[in-house]
């Protein structure tokens, strides 16, 4: 499954849905690959495009953003705004010569623990196929 390397995938998760879903996946003892590093956001509306670029710059092979189902955002439209930002960065990645599939936006609810595990598997498989973003693993300017 991992194509010979353990990928690093940063998952920006909304506190009200995906983060709770990840918690539920744990409570349900569901298995999913260990490649994910979860970062909790108060809402995906807090997502800044710089977070996405920095994640890749600092060594992530893939990034996923998981927000509430459309129409269910705790802050009304945060997830819709985040989706637009993710689309803009996907477009930018492509123009930078980086596969846009390394970044994805998902919608789920806090009750979908199984869906969270499935997203983790889906993303890990996808990144495994694409391989590491940089073979060196680190950038020469990446100090510290």
């Amino acid at each position: 499954m991992n194509n010979g390397f353990e990928s690093k995938i940063v998952a920006f998760c909304c506190h009200y849905c995906a983060f709770a879903a990840a918690d539920l996946a744990g409570v349900l003892r569901l298995k999913y690959p260990p490649d994910l590093r979860i970062i909790r956001l108060p809402c995906t509306g807090k997502l800044d495009t710089l977070f996405l670029l920095k994640a890749f710059e600092k060594g992530a092979d893939g990034v996923l953003v998981a927000g509430c189902l459309e129409g269910s955002c705790h802050f009304i439209s945060g997830n819709l705004r985040a989706k637009k930002r993710v689309l803009a960065v996907k477009n930018l990645l492509e123009r930078l010569g980086i596969e846009k599939e390394r970044l994805e936006f998902f919608n789920l609810s806090s009750a979908q623990g199984e869906r969270f595990a499935q997203i983790a598997r889906e993303m890990t498989e996808r990144i495994a196929k694409l391989g590491p973003l940089r073979s060196s693993g680190r950038c020469p300017y990446d100090r510290g």
Binding site: L50, L53, F56, E57, L96, G97, L133, C139
Partner: peptide, 16 residues
């Protein structure tokens, strides 16, 4: 944002 994007593109193209 631009610095992060340019670093990524240059690192990817092998000319950091």
């Amino acid at each position: 944002l631009l610095a992060a994007a340019v670093r990524l593109a240059r690192a990817k193209s092998g000319a950091p």
